[in-house]
Design a binder for these strands. Structure first.
Length: 607
RNA sequence: GGAGCCGUGGUGUAGCGGUCUAACACACCUGCCUGUCACGCAGGAGAUCGCGGGUUCGAUUCCCGUCGGCUCCGCCA
């Protein structure tokens, strides 16, 4: 890029080149100008951000990717340039030739990086006129997102949007640099691949050459990266687009980007260290220092203490088990829960006495939406506990509860009882709800953690079968291997998830490199020998030709950028994202196609 | 598949059964203005209140449906 060269020269020598090959081409970027450049002749290219017309003097804020600089047009300096400046409007694209000069004392603008100087306009050329933009580009944004997406090229001119994409670029480069330095090779994998059972819904691509058959876009390059290490490439990475045809969320798009990593002969520890190092590097790029090693929690402990497999550790409100205190209780919901193998869990909101009766009732009403029938609140008063249920609780239970929870006067205790699988996540929701409501989440903290020892399998009630928690290629923990057929739900996986501030950033595992184990897993997942052979035969076969032990991890790159850019949705760090209904208002995708195209693809559409 | 919130000049909002002939700010247009930087001043133009139906003497306002956006649940190995 010529512009980059311009910048390099300016930064290294402070000298701005006199000209480019064409007279209107920039010799320096707007945002690079400083007091040291005063007295130098420059040519600027950019967009008119603002025009302030004082009648006899016109100020123009000229914007390019690097920033904004003020250009002054004075009829006594150049009458022709002044005349052209009078015709300028917002977003006109111009070339300005002029002289950098220090602003008069008291005239500097501390809000601008270039505020010490301004450019005296000598020549002004309009390269491109512009209609009035449909929404303002110069102030904190509050515009319907549909409109922003329809005019994405305008939205992208906003410095805030550019900052997100620039950070994204820098993070991607830093990741590559880190992995390159550790012997990882960036290798591309197919976008047109085969659909496999398990996992998310695939996007399908019809094959013209093979009527009635379809490619699938990859949900991730999982199998290919395993085949690459089996192919002896040892260390692989890719910053790669992945596709999943599921419903969208603020942090989920149908196409998204992963930093995908796989290596040969690693221990779990090797992968964790590599991943921590990578994240530390990326946060450093964003000017954030992180504490290492990252704390680790087992899945079980995470569910107990935080009611989530991706706990937000920026605040407390830890959940505690109090089942044992209520085995014999006259509080029926508690006693019955314990008697039927369930649990009683509690958390303390310090100072929660401030909540109004109305707010407490609201919590009770929310409980069913979190999947449990109810919630019991107890306020710790100086005189004792106050709660609708307190009359059923014995003196001993009250004392034991307070001591166990270390609840102080003025605190609120929230409790739920029932099956552990229901209560734990509901308590997790409650914990997040209270933290948000009470503003307990500090914005500028960066709390990483690893969640380890996930179960390998879980029961899918709807399909009445076992399914992989992570994916079917994850290996079981060695000691648990013998339980695989007898007690499959107790088998732990060699898997790990990295969490930052309650957001799942990435996950991975040590894979199966033994065919027999992989086949046993397929069998448990209800994939019989024939189906396994048909759909995964290539993998099973590869496992027989000297597959090294291997494992890796993949990060949701959009989420990393989102968090580091301080955004609330990954759409703000993706140049051209889709709406929640999966459409692109800019291009109109998805759209109907010509019947001839369908015919060629051997496709007939219904409805 | 489900729940919630939103939809009013170009943008963001106010109005929540009748002086609404729809208000305000910004943007836009015209004029004035030589030190502004979200310039200022004066004037002007610009809206079938997302769409369809219903209730009512009367609907931007209430109800139902529908479309679109967002948030969430389900879903996302």
């Amino acid at each position: 890029m010529q512009g980059e060269h311009v910048t390099a020269q300016v930064r290294e020598t402070g000298e701005i080149p006199l000209s480019r090959s064409a007279s209107w081409q920039r010799t320096v970027w707007c945002g690079d100008l400083r007091a040291e450049h005063a007295g130098q002749q420059v040519v600027l290219n950019g967009w008119v951000a603002h025009r302030r017309d004082h009648g006899g003097l016109i100020f123009v804020d000229l914007r390019d990717r690097s920033g904004i600089v003020q250009v002054v047009f004075d009829p006594q300096i150049d009458a022709e340039a002044f005349r052209v400046a009078e015709s300028l409007r917002a977003e006109y694209v111009v070339a300005v030739t002029g002289l950098v000069r220090r602003r008069a004392p008291g005239m500097a603008n501390p809000k601008l990086a270039t505020g010490e100087i301004e450019v005296e306009g000598h020549k002004l050329e309009v390269l491109s006129k512009a209609k009035t933009p449909p929404f303002p580009l110069d102030r904190p944004l509050q515009v319907d997102e549909n409109l922003r997406l329809r005019y994405r090229y305008l939205d992208l001119r906003r410095p805030e949007m550019q900052a997100g994409l620039i950070l994204r670029h820098r993070l991607a480069q830093r990741a590559r640099q880190y992995l390159n330095a550790r012997g990882f090779l960036e290798i591309e994998t197919p976008m047109l691949t085969r659909s496999t059972p398990e996992g998310a819904r695939d996007f399908l691509v019809p094959s013209r050459l093979n009527p009635g058959t379809f490619y699938a876009l990859p949900q991730s390059p999982q199998l290919f990266k395993q085949l690459l290490v089996m192919g002896g490439l040892e260390r692989y990475y890719q910053i790669v687009r992945c596709f999943r045809d599921e419903d969208l969320r603020a942090d989920r798009q149908p196409e998204f980007t992963q930093i995908d990593i796989e290596m040969s002969f690693p221990t779990r520890e090797d992968v964790l260290q590599l991943a921590e190092g990578l994240m530390a590097e990326l946060l450093d790029e964003a000017g954030i220092e992180v504490k290492r090693p990252f704390p680790r929690l087992s899945y079980k402990e995470a569910m107990l203490r935080y009611g989530s497999d991706k706990p937000d550790l920026r605040f407390g409100l830890e959940i505690q088990d109090v089942s044992d205190l209520f085995e014999q209780s006259s509080v029926q919901v508690f006693a019955r829960a314990v008697a039927t193998g369930g649990v009683v869990r509690a958390l303390v909101l310090p100072g929660g006495k401030e909540l109004s009766r109305r707010e407490l009732d609201e919590l009770v009403e929310l409980a069913p939406r979190w999947g449990v029938p109810g919630l019991i609140w107890i306020i710790v008063e100086e005189s004792g506990l106050r709660s609708p249920v307190v009359k059923y609780m014995s003196e001993g239970e009250q004392i034991a509860l307070r001591e166990r929870l270390r609840a102080k006067t003025g605190d609120l205790i929230c409790m739920m009882a029932g099956a552990e699988g229901k209560v734990a996540p509901a308590m997790g929701r409650l914990r997040l709800h209270l933290a948000e409501k009470r503003n307990l989440i500090p914005a500028s903290r960066w709390e990483f953690l690893w969640v380890l020892d996930f179960p390998l399998l879980e029961w899918n009630e709807e399909e009445r079968r076992l399914q992989a928690v992570h994916h079917p290629f994850t290996s079981p923990v060695e000691e648990d291997l013998e339980l695989l057929e007898s007690e499959p739900l107790k088998v732990r996986a060699n898997a790990y998830d990295m969490v930052l501030n309650g957001v799942e950033l990435g996950g991975g595992s040590i894979r199966n490199h033994r065919r027999d184990v992989q086949e046993r897993l397929f069998a448990l997942l209800g994939i019989g020998p024939e189906e396994a052979q048909e759909k995964f035969g290539f993998l099973l076969e590869a496992l027989e030709y000297g597959a090294p032990p291997h494992g890796g991890i993949a990060f949701g790159f959009d989420r990393v950028v989102m968090l580091l850019a301080g955004k609330e949705t990954i759409r703000d760090v993706i140049a051209f994202p889709k709406t929640q209904s999966g459409t692109d208002p800019l291009t109109g995708a998805p759209a109907a196609v010509d019947p001839r195209q369908l015919a060629e693809l051997h496709i007939i559409c219904h409805g």
